[in-house]
Design a protein around this nucleic acid. Structure first.
Lengths: 258, 258
DNA sequence: AATTGTGAACGAATTCACAGCG
DNA sequence: CGCTGTGAATTCGTTCACAATT
């Protein structure tokens, strides 16, 4: 992107890397905790530790937002909270609907971290007529028939799909047709959506499978190590650490707590 | 990884890229669906479409596992299912414990995709004595006091944390001390673990915040587009398509369905 | 003196494009 | 002839290391 030698990109240049965006919520959470403890400033080192990343990465991330720190001192906690919130669009209100009020949908509806960050559960929707009217987390469940009206009345642009896999695409299509442009999908299916609609996926079984892969690899390495004792040279290279275990550093993905 | 010019990595070389590992479960799901419909073979193009990735990526991914396709024809569905399952370690049984049986823990316990893929819920654990003995998803909840014994008796190496944030690190420490080496964390906290322990994180509020960011960006662009009509030149560069919308392609992260 | 902000080096992941093979 | 498998080119992300700044 050019050397930007001209004057200065004033505030920020636009085009924050996706990887950085994915970490901003992490920083925000750590900062909020500091803010609650009335800590006035943090260094990149401290904040990075709290967020579980390394400090160079954090500084580079912040550099995409602008120059919000003070050399020799660190970052002003309140100010950064505000800047990141604004960057993420959390200074505005985001009404969301949750479709599919089973165990998971109920868990999501009850999740406190929602309201705390600009998100507001505008409605709960389920296809089961028996659910209609029953309150979950204090909000009465509405029937799927009302979906379009609900989206429209509340100006909802973010939808959460917590239905069984079979119903997901259909629900998705209706959400999109009704005007939703961001979807968080908990159903184990690939959703197809038109351009301009964002989908993020959260899939337990995939995460477990990834863990199983690493778990298996560990077991294999132990075996190799044991074998190395008893007998001659083992083919595997080991000792190179494989680059894969990365320490306690968080990974790429992420989504949702109790 | 050196050029590996020596002889040949025989089956596979070791060191499958992390990004590839994260996609294998996706391919596996698509393949399983095909298998159930008794489809005998697929081309990289078809399978890629079903998994929501592009075909070059899929072929490159498979190339790390070995040469399991047939040129001019495609891939044998059953054979690939087996190879990927084996690679992911799903041909063995993985007992898991779920700690924290609130709404979310219950949702996880009830999640069917578990058993289907080598995972078996060995126990449900909760700190609330009132929960003890109550069956959830047909499995009686046990008290946290039993944690170490349960891990040990069942040879559990994978733990799922679905507790409130405040309890997560403590639970984590106990799991690790008891021998768990892979953790799936649903609590909104950064866990610190010793080397050799893998942690994956699933965090709803983070995913929503990422969606909000993109949602906001869309709104901004609309506004900019509208503004471009009315008045003079706008500062922002636009038209460069920003690289960020990537189309309907899935994103990086992932985790869990109803 | 301490800590940010950032070019530059590096490494990982994706995409291209085509040779190789069935 | 069609489709896989893969080097080479490219893009994206991380880390290094240090000059700039308070």
């Amino acid at each position: 992107m050019a050397t930007g030698r001209t004057h200065r990109p004033a505030t920020r240049s636009r085009g924050i890397p996706e990887a950085t965006v994915a970490r901003l919520p992490l920083y925000l959470r750590a900062l909020t905790a500091l803010s609650e403890r009335s800590v006035p400033t943090v260094s990149s080192e401290e904040l990075a530790a709290a967020a579980g990343v390394n400090s160079a990465k954090l500084r580079k991330d912040f550099s995409y937002l602008g120059s919000y720190g003070t050399r020799g001192v660190g970052y002003d906690v309140e100010y950064l909270v505000y800047q990141i919130s604004r960057e993420l669009g959390l200074t505005q209100d985001w009404p969301v609907v949750i479709v599919g009020i089973g165990n998971l949908g109920a868990a999501l509806a009850n999740y406190g971290g929602f309201a705390s960050r600009g998100f507001r559960v505008a409605a709960l929707i389920d296809a089961d007529p028996a659910m209609a009217g029953k309150p979950v987390a204090g909000i009465p469940v509405q029937h799927t028939d009302e979906l379009e009206k609900i989206i429209d009345d509340n100006g909802v642009s973010i939808g959460v799909i917590a239905t069984p896999a079979g119903a997901a695409q259909q629900v998705c299509d209706r959400l999109v047709a009704a005007g939703v442009t961001s979807i968080l999908n908990f159903a184990p299916t690939v959703l197809s959506v038109p351009d301009g609609v964002d989908v993020r996926k959260v899939d337990l079984s995939i995460e477990l499978q990834i863990l199983a892969f690493h778990e298996q690899r560990k077991a294999g390495e132990e075996a190799a190590a044991a074998a190395a004792d008893g007998a001659g040279p083992v083919a595997t290279t080991r000792g190179e650490s494989e680059s894969a275990d990365k320490g306690p550093d968080g990974d790429v993905p992420a989504v949702m707590p109790a």
